[in-house]
Simulated scan of single mutants.
Amino acid sequence: MDELEFRRRIMSDPKQRDSEINAAIRSSDKNSQFADEILDLDKQIAQAMAVDVPDDLADRILFNQTSSVENNVVRPTFARRAMAMAASVAFVAGLLIGQINWGKIVVSPAQAGLASTAMKHVVEEKPFVEQLDEQVKSSQINAKMVPFDHEFSQSFPYHVYYLNHCGFGKSNAMHMVFQGEKGKVTLFFTGIPSEHATDFNKDGMAGIIEPMGNTSLILVGEEGEDVAKIAKNLANIIKPLN
C-alpha cells in the first residue's frame, strides 16, 4: 500500500485497522505517527461536539426571545447562549482541523457523483503520479481487475504509467494513468454501477462514464482528448471473468 492510499484510508476511517493498514503502520514511523494524530484528532472533535442539548431547547428558542435590561446591560437570552455555545464548538473544531498538514491527504468525497469523484482524484493526485512511469504490464493490469470480476481479453493498447487500487467514494476502484492521443488519461474501474454512458467536461478536463454491467469504466483526460473513442476501444476488450 502506497503512502497516498494509506493516508486516504486513515482519513476516511481513523479507527480502521485491517491487515494492510497495520502492515503500513508497522513499516513506517511516519505512518504510525500520522495514524495516531488522526485518531487523536477524531477523539478531540467528538469530545468538542458532545454538547448536551436540553429536551426543551426548541421551545426555549421559540418562546424565550426576550432579554431583560438592568443597569443598561442587556442580558443574553438562553437562545443566544445556546447559539454562542454552538459557535464556540464549531470554532474549536475548526482550530483542531487546522493543525493538520493537509498537503498530500486526499479525503475521498463519498456523496459525490462518479464524475465529480473522478475529477477530484485526478486533480488532487496529479502531483503524486505525474512524474511516475512504472511501465506497467498487461498481466499486472488484469491482476488488479480480479476484485471487480473483469479482465482485458487482449494486451492493453496504451502505455501505462501508473497502476494501483484506490478508495473511490463509498467503494474502491482500479486506478490507472496511461498515454492517450493528446496527453495522459486517468482510468477508474469501479464496482459502482451506472445507468447509462455519460460525457462530462469541466475545468479543462474531458471525461466519460461507461457502464460495464454492475461496474463502471470512467476515463478523465485533457480537454480535447477523444475519451469516447478510447472508452469504446477499451470496452471492446474488457470481459467478465469466467
Rank of each mutant, 00 (worst) to 15 (best):
P147S: 01
G180H: 05
T198E: 02
A206K: 06
I38R: 09
K137W: 13
W102S: 11
V160Q: 05
F189Y: 15
L234W: 06
K184C: 11
R17M: 10
Q16C: 12
R60P: 09
A143S: 09
A90W: 10
M11H: 07
A86C: 08
S116K: 04
G191E: 01
G191H: 00
L241S: 05
I25G: 07
E37P: 14
L187S: 01
T66E: 10
G169T: 07
S19N: 08
M176Q: 05
T117E: 10
I208K: 02
R81D: 00
Q33L: 10
L95G: 00
A24L: 06
D52W: 11
Q111M: 14
D56F: 10
D42T: 05
A35L: 12
S19M: 03
A115S: 09
A93N: 01
R26V: 15
M1Y: 10
Q16M: 13
K126E: 03
D199F: 13
T198D: 07
M11E: 05
F156A: 07
L62I: 01
V136T: 05
K104R: 03
A82L: 00
L163C: 01
V107L: 08
K239T: 04
L4I: 08
M11P: 13
R80E: 14
I208A: 08
D52N: 06
W102R: 06
D55K: 14
K232Y: 12
E5K: 15
